[in-house]
Design a protein around this nucleic acid. Structure first.
Length: 936
RNA sequence: GGGCAAUUGGCUCAGUGGUUAGAGCGUACGGUUCACAUCCGUAAGGUCGGGGGUUCAAAUCCCUCAUUGCCCACCA
């Protein structure tokens, strides 16, 4: 077969992706995929963390989706009815912002367009570019069931969101209230607490004088202020308050102190005159005030600070709104300030206070300010009427589910932050003052006189259902985009419509995917996601899943980190350190990208990569490719095996080399399977890399070469183990494995029956390799290990003694084992191979027997028998004994080498003696310990 | 202020009580007709952040300190 020297990814990728899709391999229904007879397979389900429709595939998506695909493909091969549900999220504010920016480029705003027209634009944009990221996922090889693709604002999905809202509303868990919320002045909407990002910012702490109202009515401004927080010495006593936001003082309605603070006790209840404004405000006592901060007296601005809001509620203080929803000062800010931007106003207030001598001092102060997670504008806390979800009850249930292990986290360390968050959760502000999203399904009676209560309903009632007559209007706000996301694990399966249907039958019929399979697929098996949306999304899904489905949405959560550049910096366009997965796929192949991401993804930890990382992966692809090339060059229709790995192949059982590689292969299967099952694909990929390259290629293929004389059949293990490796590599590197597998298929050709025997039509549906314990050959493994060590030692000695490669030498091998001569004959039977191993290539004229001569035994021998017998009591101890006894074996080998090294420096000899002594010590201590055990 | 994670060779990372602590990249030396120079062979390079403890045995478990990063919090 004519195979190019290097693997060409681009050629293979599109071809095989189309091939898989054409055969419906990705499709899953409760009864299996179309054309598949129902086999009572267990489901294995993943729902995608839906990327925003705005998204273009970045490296984070690539990591997230590669991991999901690896797990899905693995489980599918393992015999599960594997389903990976794809979809996209409407992305609320983020998406609206994108379109608003586009509009702005045309010089328009959404307000100018109006709600209806603007939404048309949104949909138009969504329809044009919303599939971009899904197509990029296909490029990445994702084996999603595309027939189930969902969008959070699809009609059925929207209805489900409405239904969820109405149910919560009717359960009394959703309420409308005037509360302090995080307001983004740029996005012009409320945000949930979790959507606020806190950033350290340099600022100032201004110490402002608030004078007491004098009995005679004077405000006392202009008095002396040479002392600290309180001044009563002059005729104008005052209190000093510290603030980082002086502009909010215009809305102050009190000054608060801690009730236990002796300094201020006598002032509680007295009146102050608010500087610049002249309003009378009281001094109140509240526990929330920290006496140690600033002066211990705090200004209270109920409208613009959450703590102050709470204080005001307790003390029934009035509130004055001085900042509006655009971040500008209101008319209540007073003359000279109204209409100013909040920061301009801050400056002016400070200037004015200075001018009046009312600022005691200014300190530099670093504090964290809340910013909008979508546009990074500084949040303004504002009181406004919003919809809230009361979370206490459902969050507690969710926390319990995590505590009891109904949801397991990988790594476990993420469980407790999740529990903590749930247990301290404040009510969730659900409403957003934007247009793109699920409009809140609450309807108000237009007839104000009747005083009808608002009604929540999935569909629009024709008239007000309360007074059954008046026109109605819908609440203008939309729901937080994360509300629909929280419902995702069951709405994608058709909730609520099919909630009841399939409960009894369990394994529903094969109706080609019309049935969402809610009860069959839910709870899903695993959620794969980054830790950055643990609270935003994961915790909320658990709450909603338990609320609506009565069970957790997923049994396992695999948390991965974020991808950083090689210096540990976050990737960003402005830093220019972005690794573009599309570019990587183009340059190195999709499999290289997937391999790097899989291999470096230790659960829960960030990974650092640079473009260089992909060179190694590409080389690995090429290694696989060339191993395949070599094997295919030796495979024909006549000599090909037609079954899974077996020692009974034509020349398999008779040759210890094959028994060795089969044993090692079996160990590899066992390890890799366990790693995948434990959600550790990184470990699996490293194990495969090592086995394939360092054992299969470096040793087995080299050992096999001399056995491939023209006219002989290659050992069946050669092809069988190779295919086995391809199968295990397939979840990680789907394309190259399929490409090579297909080449094998055509080399093998159909058997007598006209079929490919045991070989399925695609590696994707080839059942996962099983461990065959009956094919473990520990004796052969031990012997081969010895031979490999021997050959390595010969290489070392040659290199150390600067023996040119082409020069043949006489070697003496010392061993304590008199089977060694036979072993060497057995494994290195002919001259050609010997020369290869030794690095002789051209001048290998001497026969093997004179190149390697074996004599004698080693001198060092410490009796171990007694201890070993005793140690049988404990496997752990046996392991230790094995370790120590091996120390001594190696010591023997080193001492043997010493004889070769006729010019070995005395230093080296000393090293060996030290080593010997250390091991004797180790052994003696162990002996002692064992004796004490025996005594007990 | 609270919490979590990390600290292993020049770099990026594996390694959750037991063989001589591993790999990739980088470095040095040597090698290509015969699957692969996207390759092969060999080497150098680590007192596993510091200190203390538990243990026959510690990179691994405990305590403590240090440094870095992240998350949370009503840092006025």
């Amino acid at each position: 077969m004519d195979i190019p020297k290097t693997y060409n990814p681009e050629e293979a990728e599109q071809k095989w992706y189309d091939f898989w899709q054409a055969r419906n391999y990705f499709i899953s229904a409760p009864g299996g995929r179309p054309g598949q007879t129902s086999e009572n397979k267990k489901p294995f389900t993943i729902v995608i963390p839906p990327p925003n429709v705005t998204g273009a595939l970045h490296i984070g998506h690539a990591l997230n989706n590669t991991l999901q695909d690896v797990i899905t493909r693995f489980r599918r091969m393992q015999g599960y009815n594997a389903l990976w549900v794809p979809g996209t999220d409407h992305g609320g504010i983020a998406t609206q912002n994108v379109v608003e920016r586009l509009l702005l480029a045309e010089g328009k705003t959404r307000q100018q367009l109006g709600r209806e027209k603007f939404l048309e634009k949104m949909w138009q944009w969504k329809n044009e570019s919303g599939d971009t990221i899904l197509n990029q996922l296909k490029r990445l090889g994702c084996s999603c069931d595309w027939t189930r693709t969902k969008f959070t604002m699809d009609d059925d999905m929207s209805l489900a969101v409405m239904a969820a809202f109405v149910q919560l509303y009717n359960n009394g868990l959703i309420y409308r209230g005037n509360r302090m919320v995080n307001w983004c002045p740029r996005c012009q909407t409320a945000l949930a607490d979790i959507e606020v990002e806190h950033k350290e910012q340099k600022g100032n702490l201004w110490y402002i004088l608030y004078h007491f109202k004098m009995d005679n009515g004077r405000s006392g401004i202009g008095g002396s202020h040479d002392s600290g927080g309180i001044n009563e010495t002059g005729d104008t006593p005052y209190v000093v308050v510290a603030t980082t936001r002086p502009e909010t003082m215009l809305g102050d309605t009190a000054v608060a102190v801690n009730p236990g603070d002796e300094r201020y006790k006598i002032f509680i209840g007295r009146k102050l005159i608010l500087p610049l404004v002249g309003r009378e405000i009281p001094v109140v006592a509240d526990e929330l005030v920290d006496p140690a901060f600033g002066t211990g007296a705090v200004k209270v601005t109920p409208s613009h600070d959450p703590v102050d809001f709470a204080i005001a509620e307790r003390h029934k203080l009035p509130s004055v709104i001085v900042i509006d929803e655009k971040g500008k000062m209101t008319k209540h800010a007073g003359n000279g300030y109204a209409g100013l931007d909040r920061y301009d106003c801050r400056k002016k207030v400070v200037d004015d206070l200075y001018a009046k001598g009312l600022i005691e001092k200014t300190e530099d102060y670093v504090h964290s300010v809340g910013t909008c997670y979508r546009c990074h504008t500084v949040i303004e806390p504002l009181v406004s009427e919003q919809w809230f979800l009361s979370t206490k009850e459902i969050a507690t249930t969710a926390a319990d589910a995590v505590k009891s292990g109904r949801v397991k986290f990988y790594p476990e360390s993420w469980a407790s932050p999740c529990i903590d968050w749930l247990e301290n959760l404040q009510d969730w502000c659900l409403s957003r003052q934007i247009w793109w999203g699920h409009r809140i399904p609450v309807w108000y009676c237009k007839n104000k006189k009747t005083g009808c209560k608002p009604v929540a309903s999935v569909t629009r009632p024709p008239k007000c259902p309360v007074c059954s007559g008046a026109e109605i209007e819908q609440d203008p706000d939309v729901l937080d985009t994360w509300f629909s996301s929280a419902l995702w694990p069951f709405t994608v399966f058709g909730w609520p419509d099919r909630n009841e249907e399939k409960q009894v039958s369990g394994n529903g019929g094969n109706d080609g995917g019309n049935d969402g399979g809610l009860r069959y697929y839910y709870p899903t098996s695993v959620l794969v996601t980054g830790y950055e949306i643990l609270y935003l999304w994961v915790a909320r899904m658990i709450m909603m899943g338990l609320k609506f489905m009565g069970d957790v949405p997923f049994r396992n959560v695999y948390i991965h980190g974020i991808v950083r550049d090689i210096h540990g910096k976050k990737m960003s366009k402005s830093l220019g350190n972005v690794v573009d997965p599309l570019e990587i796929m183009k340059q190195y192949g999709t499999d290289s990208l997937r391999f790097v991401l899989t291999q470096s993804s230790t659960a829960g930890r960030d990974i650092q990569i640079s473009e260089d990382s992909f060179t190694g992966a590409r080389n690995f692809c090429n290694k696989i490719w060339n191993a395949g090339r070599f094997i295919l060059m030796n495979t024909t229709q006549e000599n090909a095996p037609r079954q899974d790995v077996s020692p009974d192949g034509p020349s398999g059982a008779s040759d210890p080399v094959n028994r060795w590689i089969i044993s090692r292969y079996n160990e590899c299967v066992s390890d890799v399977t366990r790693s995948f099952e434990n959600y550790n694909p990184a470990e699996a990929s490293r194990r495969l890399y090592d086995f394939f390259w360092s054992e299969f290629c470096d040793w087995y293929l080299e050992l096999v070469k001399p056995r491939l004389a023209p006219g002989t059949k290659p050992p069946s293990a050669l092809l069988e183990v190779f295919i086995g490796c391809l199968r295990m590599l397939h979840p990680i590197m789907p394309y190259i494995t399929e490409e090579l597998y297909q080449k094998v298929l055509s080399a093998v050709g159909p058997d007598e029956s006209g079929q490919n025997g045991a070989f399925p039509e695609s590696i994707m549906i080839y059942p996962w390799p099983s461990v065959k314990n009956e094919m473990a050959y520990p004796d052969d493994v031990r012997e081969l290990r010895f031979i490999m060590e021997l050959i390595t030692n010969i290489r070392i000695i040659r290199a150390e003694m600067n023996v040119p490669v082409k020069q043949t030498i006489n070697m003496v091998v010392l061993s304590h084992d008199n089977r060694v001569p036979d072993l060497i004959k057995k494994y290195i039977p002919n001259l050609k191979f010997m020369c290869r191993v030794d690095g002789f290539s051209a001048a290998g004229t001497k026969p093997a027997r004179s190149a390697v001569t074996v004599i004698g035994d080693i001198e060092i021998c410490i009796p171990l028998e007694g201890i070993i017998d005793f140690a049988k009591e404990s496997a752990r101890l046996t392991k230790t004994i094995a370790a120590v006894s091996r120390d001594i074996e190696i010591l023997g080998a080193k001492l043997s080498n010493e004889k070769f090294l006729s010019r070995a420096p005395s230093q080296e000899v000393q090293k060996i003696r030290d080593f010997s002594r250390q091991n004797e010590d180790k052994l003696n201590r162990l002996k002692k310990y064992l004796e004490t055990l025996e005594g007990k």
